[in-house]
Design a protein around this nucleic acid. Structure first.
Lengths: 204, 204
DNA sequence: CCAAATTCCAACCATTTGGTTGACTTCTCC
DNA sequence: GGAGAAGTCAACCAAATGGTTGGAATTTGG
C-alpha cells in the first residue's frame, strides 16, 4: 500500500490523514490507519504515542493548509477587490485538490472545542492582518471605490461562496440528484462565477 | 432530565437528537443518549432496535427540516428575487434556532454515502421544483430582469451565503478570535446583509 | 564485524461499547 | 380484581478497540 522508499513516519501520517479526513476522529480505527499504511498497529504508537496525538498532528496540518493562504492574500498591497480575487482563485484551486479539507476541519473543530485544539498553534499575526484588511475595506467604502458594506460580512460572503459548495456536495447530490461528475464541472466553474458575482455586488 | 409527561419514545428521540447532533454518529455512545433521556440503556433498544435505526430517524428528521422549506420557497408564484428573499429569511431564521443542523447533516451525509442514507425518503417533487426554478431564472435573465447568471450557481450562491457562516462558526472564532457572543450578533445581521448583497449583485 | 540502538511485529491486555436477557413493575381492559 | 400486555431495568455478554509487551529483525557506527 505504501512505498518502502518514504519513511515509515511519513507513511503513517499520509495514511492517518486519509482515514481521519474520511471518517473523522471518532469514526477512525487505529487498525484501519495501520492497514492503510501497510504496517503493524503497534508502530502507530511507537511513532505517535496515542490516537489523540496522531490526530492532533493531522488536524494541525489541515489548519495550516487553510489559514496561511488567507493571510497571504489579505496582506498583499493590492486593492480590496484584487485581494479578494486572489483569495477566490487560490482557495478554489486548493479545494479542488483537497475537497475534504473544510468539512473535516469544521466538524472536528466544532467537536473538540479546546480538547486537542487548544494546543494547535495560532498564527499570532492573524488578528492584525484581519484588522488591517477590515480597515482597508472601510476606507475603500468611504472613498466610493466599494459599495458600502460591513467588512466582516464581506469576508464572510467571500468565504461562503468559495467554501460552501465543497462542503455541500453530499447534500446537493441528494437534493438535486445531480450526478457527481456534473457537480465537479460546476465546482470547476466556481472561481469565475464567484468573481463575476462579487464584482457585480461590490462595484458601486 | 426529562418530563414524565412526554412519552418515553419522544424523550429518547430528543435526547438522541441532541447527542447525535453534537457528536455525530460515530462519536455518540448509546449510554450517553440513555443518560440524557433519563432512562436505562435497554430502553433504547426496546423502542428503536439499534443505534443505526435510531440514528436514521434523527438524520431523517433533520433532512426533512431542511428540504421542505427550500421547496416551498422555490415553488411559490413570486419573482426570482422575491423567492430568494423568502429563502434567505426563512432559512436564516431556522438556522438561528437550530445552528447544528447543517454541519450535522453535511458530515453524516458525507460519511454514509448510502449506508443509512439510502433509506431516507427523498421528496420526489424535489427535482421538478428545482428544474422549474432554473427555468424561471433563465427566463428572467433573458427578459433583462436579472443580471445574466447560471441558475445552478445562483442557487449555490444563495445557499452558501446563508448556511456557511453557521458551519464556519468554530473556524471563525479560531481564526479571527472573535468572541462567541459577538459572532451571534453578526449572524443575526446576516439576513439583511445577504439580501442587500444579492440585490446589488443580481439587479442589472 | 560486532554490539548498541533503532525499527518492527505477533500476541496479549484492559476497557469500552452495542446489544441481550430474564425478571420485576405498571398499565389496560374485561 | 386479575390476567395479559407493555414498559422498565440491573446484570450480563461478545465483539471491538486503544494500547502494551517482549523479543525478533535491521540499521548504525565505532
Amino acid at each position: 500500500m505504501s512505498d518502502k522508499q518514504t519513511s515509515a513516519e511519513e507513511n503513517i501520517l499520509r495514511a492517518a490523514e486519509k482515514i481521519f479526513m474520511e471518517k473523522g476522529f471518532a469514526g477512525t480505527r487505529m487498525q484501519e490507519v495501520a492497514d492503510e499504511a501497510g504496517i503493524n498497529k503497534a508502530m502507530l504508537h511507537y511513532y505517535f504515542r496515542s490516537k489523540e496525538k496522531l490526530f492532533q498532528v493531522i488536524l494541525s496540518e489541515a489548519i495550516n493548509e487553510i489559514s496561511p493562504m488567507l493571510m497571504r492574500s489579505l496582506s498583499s498591497d493590492k486593492s480590496v477587490l484584487d485581494k479578494l480575487e486572489d483569495l477566490v482563485s487560490n482557495y478554489t484551486a486548493l479545494l479542488l485538490k483537497r475537497p475534504h479539507l473544510p468539512l473535516f476541519v469544521m466538524h472536528e473543530l466544532s467537536q473538540n472545542q479546546g480538547k486537542f485544539v487548544a494546543d494547535i498553534a495560532i498564527n499570532s499575526r492573524t488578528q492584525p492582518v484581519m484588522l488591517a484588511f477590515f480597515q482597508q475595506v472601510t476606507e475603500e467604502c468611504a472613498a466610493g471605490k466599494l459599495r458600502n458594506i460591513q467588512p466582516v460580512h464581506l469576508l464572510l460572503h467571500v468565504m461562503s461562496l468559495i467554501v460552501f459548495p465543497f462542503i455541500a456536495r453530499p447534500m446537493v447530490s441528494r437534493v438535486a440528484e445531480l450526478p457527481g461528475a456534473l457537480f465537479d464541472e460546476v465546482l470547476a466553474q466556481r472561481t469565475e462565477e464567484v468573481l463575476r458575482f462579487l464584482r457585480a455586488g461590490l462595484v458601486p
